[in-house]
C-alpha cells in the first residue's frame, strides 16, 4: 500500500543505497533472501554502503540547509512482531555523502521474516523552511525495505524429531505437520514438522538436507511435496481462509496464500476447492506436478 505524505519529499535518487551484505567466516557475501543456517544463536553482521545527497535532500524537501537529518535502519521480525533500531547516523548537508551502514543483530528477538527498513528522517527543522516541508521530527523523507526469510532450514519450518509411539499419531508414520488454526498468528510459531525417529532414513535425510545424496534427495522431495500438500489442504479446508484477505506479513494466512499462489497461480481458491472434492486423484497429481515431485536434481 502506498502512503500519502502530508509534506514535501525529495525524489528517490537523493539516496543511492547499495547491496546488503553480511560477514561470513571468510569475508563477506551479499545478503541472501533466505538464511537456511540461521538460528537464535546467530549474530548477523550486516553492512550496506549508502550515498546520500544531503543538501539536495534538504532543499527538495523544502527544508533549510541547516535542518538536521538522520539515516536510520529499523529491523522488524515477523515471528516476534518486534522491531527496533539497528543503526542511525546524522546526514550532513553535503551532496555525495558516503555512509556505511554497519551493525550486528542478535538472534534473540528475530525469526520468520526479517525486514530492514532504511529511512531518511527529519531530526529537527530550522527557520526558513517551506510551509509544505515536514516539521515533525521523525518525518520520513525517503525509505526502502529489504526482507530475508530466517530459519529457512531445508523444509522451512521448525522441526522436531520424536518417537511417534509417544505421540498421538500413527506409530509407523514418517512425519506429521502440525499447523495451527489462527490465520493471523506468526506462521513460524504455528507450524511444526514432526519427524518420526523410528524412520531412520527420514531423520538422516533431514540431517543432511544441506548436502543430500540421491537417496536423501528423493526422501526430501517426498517430504516437501507432502508438506506442501498439507498446507494447501489446510488452506482449502479452513472455513475462514479466503484469497482476497490481506493477512499480516509473516502470518499463517499469508503463508497459506503464498503457497497457493505459487503452487497454482492459474487457479482460483474456489476452483481448487471444487477440484479437490470432485477429482481428488487429479488434484493429487496436480500437486505432484507443481512441486516437481521426484524430479531429477
Amino acid at each position: 500500500m502506498s502512503r500519502a505524505f502530508p509534506f514535501l519529499r525529495p525524489p528517490g535518487d537523493v539516496v543511492v543505497a547499495g547491496l546488503w551484505s553480511r560477514a561470513v567466516i571468510d569475508g563477506t557475501e551479499e545478503l541472501p533472501r533466505e538464511l537456511p543456517d540461521w538460528d537464535y544463536d546467530t549474530v548477523l553482521s550486516i553492512h550496506r554502503p549508502v550515498q546520500v545527497d544531503g543538501l539536495r535532500a534538504r532543499r527538495l524537501s523544502g527544508l533549510a540547509d541547516d535542518a538536521e537529518l538522520d539515516l536510520t535502519v529499523r529491523w522488524a521480525a515477523s515471528n516476534s512482531a518486534l522491531r527496533g533500531r539497528a543503526w542511525r547516523t546524522a546526514v550532513p548537508p553535503r551532496d555525495g555523502v558516503e555512509l556505511n551502514i554497519e551493525f550486528d543483530l542478535d538472534g534473540d528477538e528475530l525469526g520468520g521474516i526479517l525486514e530492514f527498513h532504511t529511512v531518511l528522517t527529519l531530526r529537527r527543522s530550522t527557520g526558513g523552511a517551506s510551509a509544505a516541508a515536514a516539521r515533525r521530527p521523525g518525518s520520513v523523507l525517503w525509505n526502502d525495505k529489504f526482507s530475508i526469510l530466517l530459519q529457512g532450514d531445508a523444509i522451512l519450518f521448525p522441526l522436531a524429531i520424536a518417537d511417534f509411539h509417544e505421540l498421538p499419531y500413527p506409530t509407523k508414520a514418517s512425519w506429521y505437520l502440525e499447523v495451527g488454526e489462527d490465520l493471523e498468528a506468526a506462521a513460524l510459531g504455528s507450524i511444526l514438522l514432526l519427524a518420526n525417529e523410528r524412520r531412520e532414513i527420514v531423520v538422516k535425510a533431514l540431517a543432511v538436507a544441506g548436502s543430500p545424496t540421491d537417496a536423501d534427495r528423493r526422501i526430501l522431495s517426498t517430504l516437501r511435496t507432502d508438506v506442501q500438500r498439507t498446507l494447501i489442504e489446510r488452506a482449502l479446508t479452513h472455513e475462514d481462509f479466503a484469497d482476497d484477505v490481506d493477512y499480516p506479513t509473516g502470518s499463517l494466512g499469508a503463508l497459506l496464500a503464498a503457497v497457493l499462489r505459487t503452487t497454482f497461480p492459474a487457479f482460483t481458491l474456489e476452483a481448487l476447492r471444487r477440484e479437490r472434492l470432485s477429482e481428488p486423484a487429479l488434484f493429487t497429481s496436480r500437486i505432484q506436478d507443481a512441486t516437481n515431485f521426484l524430479a531429477a536434481p
Binding site: 502512503r3 502530508p6 536510520t72 533500531r85 531530526r123 515533525r136 521530527p137 521523525g138 520520513v140
Partner: peptide
C-alpha cells in the same frame, strides 16, 4: 496514524516522549 509518516525508531527518547 502518525507511524505511517513518522519513524518512531529514529527518534531519541526525549523526543519520542514529547510526541
Amino acid at each position: 496514524r502518525t507511524s505511517v509518516i513518522v519513524e518512531f525508531e529514529a527518534l531519541d527518547e526525549d523526543e519520542l516522549r514529547r510526541q
